[in-house]
Each structure stands twice: as C-alpha cells, then as structure tokens.
Amino acid sequence: MTAHTAPPRAPGTGPAAGRPAPARPARRRRRSLLPYALVAPAGVMEVLVHIVPMLLGVWIAFLGLTQLNIARWVQAPFVGLRNFATGLDPSGPIGSQLYAALGRTALFTVIVVALSWSLGMLGAVLLTSRFKGRGVLRTLFLVPYALPSYVGTIAWAFMFNQRDGVINRILVDDLGVLDHRPFWLLGGNAFWVTVVVTAWQFWPFAFLMLLAALQNIPDSVYEAAAIDGASLWRQFTRITLPMVRPANAVLLLILSLWIFNQFNVPYVLFGPASPPEATLVSPLIYQQSFNNWNFGVGGAMSVLLLCVLLLASVLYVRLVLPQGRSVDD
C-alpha cells in the first residue's frame, strides 16, 4: 500500500546503497526525493482542506456573500471593510455579541481545562499504584472519551431536563437540596451545563496523557522520597509535577485549544442557536453564517478569532514550550 505513492527508483540511489559505511552521518547522503514523496500526500491534503480554506476564509470576510449569491460566490461583490464594521463593532448589536462570546469562551476554557486537568491528574495518580481492579477502572475512565461526543451530550441533555430529568430528581426528590426544579438548559444555567458536559468528555483525555507520562517515572524515585520522610503532597509537588512537566505543556495547549473551539457540545445540547448567556465563539460564528445567512460577517468574526488564536499560541509556545518537547524531535 505504501509503495505506490513513491516514484519508482533505481536501486542505486537508495541512501544506503553503494556505500559500505552506513555509520556516515545523514547529512552527507545524496539528496533524495524519497522524503518529499512521503510527505507530499499529507501536504497536499493539508493544503486543500486547511491552508487554502483558511486563506479563502480571510477573503470571504471582504465579500458581500448572501444566500442569494452563494452558489456563484466567485462573483460576489467586494465590499471592503463593511463586514468588519458590522461584525466587530463593539457598540453594534452583532459586534457586542462577539466580544461577550469571546470573554465567555475564555472563562469557559479556563474552568473546563482546570476541571479536566484536576480530575485527570487525580485519576492518573491513583491508578498508577498497583491494586486489584486497576485495569477495569482505567478502561471505565476512558469511556467518556471513547464515546461519540454527541452520545454523551444527548444523554446529559436528557439528564438535565427540567421536569423529569435525573439531575432534578436527585437534587429535589432524592437529596432534597433544592425545593424547586431549575431550568438547566436555559439562561445562565446553560453555561454551567456546557461546562459540566464538556469537562465530563475531556477529563479522560487529560487522564490518558498524564497516565502515560506517569508511567515514565520510576518507582524508585518515590521510594527514595518516602524513605526521606516526604509526605504524599510533597512527593506530588516535588516529584510528580516536575516530572510530567513536558507532557503537561503539550496537554494544556491541546486541551485549551479544543475547549476554546468547542462546537459539538453546545450544538447538540441547544441546537443551532445556543441561549444568549451560553453562546461560545464557534457556535456564534455558525449562527451568523448559517442561521442568519451573514456569511461575510461570520467571515469577519472568523478573521478576528484567527488572530486571537495565533497570538495566544505564539505567546504560549514562546513562554512555555521551550521547556517541553519541541515540535519536530
């Protein structure tokens, strides 16, 4: 399967051929087309599905694109900065929604990442020790991650149902903590429901990555610390945390990006239009583009989002990642 994408090569041009000394450093080898042939298919797909659409996305923000001319979008009129004026004006009705959503999404990201990381770390530390039933629990904890996202979310939507959902049953009927049945999927509560559901789906990923990282810490390090009288907390802060630091740097970046860009959970919980108090950035752009047919305004918002994410990631990579794993080792 692999061979058909590489160009046919004469036997003599293989990197090791004709040279009796294989220990020769790689740089001295004759330039070969093989690496390019190997990365080309992946590169072409990336360009077609990611790079070109991203550039086109910026271009769309300058077009007057509506549902009338979308089929012939190449001929859509150029409108300059009009979309940006509508979509990014902090005092306008649409622009103000965008900035509110950006702030809300940042808060959402911080809370969900903190929750997911804490739960994942707790699970990973507890499951690194050996005891009966460890394998079963490890599998169980990974289920929310393996489960299709929409399945988990549909179940939570059912559970948060105001009249007969299990959450209100537990809180009102079984435990008696509340004396009325709140509407969880409306207003401000909808934000917290999104937090709970997203954290439920993402903590197993943190668990998985941290579990893998913890496996690389030898037991003897903890044994030595315990002999020196270090408490559990001290062992955690002085051994565990520093040792997983490289993995953590990458994990937190990936988690933050996934959660900041969250679309599935709100879409399945609330449908195409989230409650205004719980609207995150991705769903807002979707609403502008596909519910309100404001493709250009959606595009202008996308450009701003692109800039925000670029800036945040560059800052993160500059400040944190040098201590972690570099991307190409």
């Binding site: 992946a42 590169g43 086109l56 979308i70 990936i254 860009n261 979707y286 959606g298 989002l305 190409d328």
Partner: peptide, 26 residues
C-alpha cells in the same frame, strides 16, 4: 512542514467550514 501542519490543529473547524463548502461547490 511540521510546524505548519501542527498549527492547523489549533484552529476551530468553524474557520474552515464555509470556505471548504465554497471550494467544494466550485
């Protein structure tokens, strides 16, 4: 190559959705 490929991972699907739809139309 690896930097560009990895960095596409950080952008939300919503940024690609409409352009990709338009490219497919075209």
């Amino acid at each position: 190559f690896s930097l560009v490929v990895l960095s596409t991972q950080m952008f939300p699907g919503i940024l690609f959705l409409l352009p990709l739809f338009l490219i497919y139309t075209q």
